[in-house]
Design a protein around this nucleic acid. Structure first.
Lengths: 249, 249
DNA sequence: GCATAAGCTTGACCTGCGTCAATGACTGTT
DNA sequence: AACAGTCATTGACGCAGGTCAAGCTTATGC
């Protein structure tokens, strides 16, 4: 499988790391960063590759540096539900757990900043600032999961699509340290099938609703991986939310 | 509103606390427990009462000592989704956040062991064992939320009901420090409407599926708040899971 | 260039669950 | 006993979204 976007792998320095300020190491001081830098190592995965399968042993934890990965759960008969979408700065793996609870898949080329699990647990115990940041991030993830539960439990297909696009807008804006508004252009790394797995729908339904939104002028697809949202507020309007939602990471 | 089960409120000692070993304070040593004991206070709520509304200021955090509470989210048009079910030993509130993100409601008479938010944040910062336990509990809640997402996104009504009952079996067993198996009797504190809010269904659908499961002999309701499960394994069977799921808290 | 595959769109049809509505069961009150 | 209120059950009906199937677009390999 060819690597289409060159992953920035190799020994990056934490000084120049573009996700440091949002990652698990964000609150560490200089001394602590030295220790982290000594223990870290990078791993890369090409688009489409499985990072770990649910149930497999996972002897590392890490942070997404570039690319996108998904967490998915599957029933015996093949029904699949995405339960996490990992974007740059998101943390993966769980301290003190050996077996992976979910299947992690690289959906684009992926660069991870990793730590072996045991040494990371030691660092966690010795570095309150690291532990406190991890708690904060986990609580944010829990909030995101709960917003997602509302989508899965109570929203129509149309509202679900709009909700997903709105979430991606907010993420995109957060990266630029802005609040989402007006006309926006977002990157959509997911296939229709991945969107369906995210939203608890079938890929046909996703496709139909995307077509409908396009025809109504609510979205304007640019090629296969990018979308222009002419009016963010309008998107939120039809997502069913009343806009006062927490600033979802 | 009459109090039907006498809440064990009043100044309980942490020594005799029946949920200590599963609560946020579980890993604290004697010194730390002294400090917690000085800061704690109990609050009680009668069944049906709202503890806090989403968006309201919440100046405390706490642990469920006895009773059951729910976290719910609501869309403007009234659609409601439960996003958390708080049983004894579960933690509520979020350090460093003032506004409640969800509506918390007592579904039975409820006793909470509370701390004012600010002092608790101080304790968290000074007590690694407290912080580490809170992280562990939050990660467990995140796992539970993700299992729930699979239910909401991909399971049929029948499977959802079975999943909920299986989860309650596991919780019931965990309380007794056993693994669920064979014939079990579980307490069901939720109304049909609350079950529907949990499962992303309507109360009519819940009622119909409960009737169907009863007629098939998979459950045997005892009055309105209690159910006998003749065969736990069979319940898991029809829940769609393949049984190897994580031991869900 | 063509071949193959992966992903997307669209149509026709069907079904599981939601909606609306009536009735029943239980509990506490006067 | 009669009642009022809450919660649960059951039926009739309709529709949103699932299923199955065909064809289209775009990308990649030879």
């Amino acid at each position: 499988m060819p690597v289409t976007t060159a992953p920035q792998s190799g020994p990056l320095s934490c000084d120049s790391c573009r996700i440091h300020n949002r990652a698990v190491c964000a609150h560490c001081n200089a001394d602590e960063m030295v220790r982290l830098e000594q223990a870290k190592f990078y791993r890369t995965f090409p688009a489409g590759q499985v990072v770990v399968c649910a149930g497999d042993e996972m002897d590392f934890v890490g942070t997404v540096v570039t690319g996108v990965a998904t967490l998915t759960q599957t029933l015996e008969d093949g029904r699949t539900q995405m339960v996490g979408l990992l974007l740059p700065s998101d943390f993966l793996g769980r301290p003190r757990r050996i077996e992976a609870a979910y299947t992690i898949t690289a959906v684009t080329d992926l660069v991870l900043c990793c730590f072996r699990r045991k040494p990371f647990e030691k660092l966690l115990a010795d570095t309150p600032r690291l532990a406190s940041r991890l708690l904060e991030m986990t609580l944010d993830e829990l909030d995101a999961a709960r917003e997602w539960m509302l989508i899965l439990g109570r929203k129509s297909a149309r509202e679900r699509i709009a909700s997903l696009l709105a979430i991606l807008c907010r993420r995109e804006a957060a990266l630029m340290r802005e609040t989402p508004s007006g006309r926006m252009s977002i990157h959509l790394p997911l296939t229709r099938e991945a969107m369906a797995d995210y939203l608890g729908l079938t890929l046909e339904t996703v496709s139909r609703q995307m077509t409908a939104l396009r025809k109504e002028g609510l979205i304007d697809p640019q090629g296969r991986r990018s979308i222009i949202v002419p009016d963010y507020a309008q998107l939120v309007e039809i997502s069913g939310d009343d806009m006062d939602g927490a600033p979802l990471v």
